[in-house]
Simulated scan of single mutants.
Amino acid sequence: MPNFSEIVAAFPELQNPDGRVWIPTRFLRFLLSQLADALPVDEHLYAADNPDVAAAHEAGQLASLREHFTQTGYFEARPLPVRLVDEHWYLTEYPDAGNAVARGTVTDAAQHYALRGRTEGRVGSASQREQQARWRTELEELFRACDGVWPLQKHM
């Protein structure tokens, strides 16, 4: 990661907290791919969720499943291939999951999350919920600051 001073040199608006920074889509995608690369990607889960990608990898068309996710899959809105489930929190937060475990429909919170929770928009832990809320708040503030028009729409 470059020093912040190098980033400020590229985007001097960062020195003014009221300024806006317009960055090329290519650079934004790069930044997001770097964030995605920091995730603890479970390649087995990614392969199971994406048989087309798994087949391409097995055929030697892709160097790695992790690289596909961080460079392509994330931007295609494929499910996050991350297994981060806090068992106690998840079962407390989602009583239906606890009931499913009690009935033996699933073995544990992680299995419930993998089979249903992710696709239903659930999160696996309190920290994930907090992170999601921080991102949502930041995006909503950006939207309001742009008078209800996303920044890229203003340039169209």
Rank of each mutant, 00 (worst) to 15 (best):
A126W: 05
N99D: 15
Y74E: 04
G98H: 12
P81T: 04
R83N: 04
A59Y: 04
W135A: 09
Q61I: 07
A59I: 08
A100T: 03
A54D: 11
H57T: 06
G124H: 03
W135D: 09
H88R: 15
E76S: 07
R116H: 13
E130A: 14
L65R: 09
Q111E: 15
Q71F: 00
G98N: 02
Y74F: 14
V123N: 01
L62C: 02
R78N: 00
E58P: 05
P95T: 07
V85K: 02
E67M: 12
D86H: 07
H68D: 00
F75A: 02
T105S: 12
V123D: 11
Q131Y: 14
A109I: 01
F75C: 01
Y90E: 03
Q61Y: 01
S125T: 01
A56W: 12
Q128E: 15
T107N: 14
L84Q: 09
G117Q: 09
L62F: 15
R122C: 04
A100H: 09
F69Y: 14
W89I: 03
R122H: 05
Q71W: 05
G121C: 15
G60W: 11
G121L: 02
A100N: 06
L84M: 03
A56T: 03
Q131I: 06
F69V: 03
H68W: 11
R129K: 14
F75Y: 00
Q131D: 08
Y113Q: 05
G124R: 02
V101F: 08
Q71G: 09
A100V: 05
A55W: 10
Y74M: 05
D96G: 09
A63Q: 10
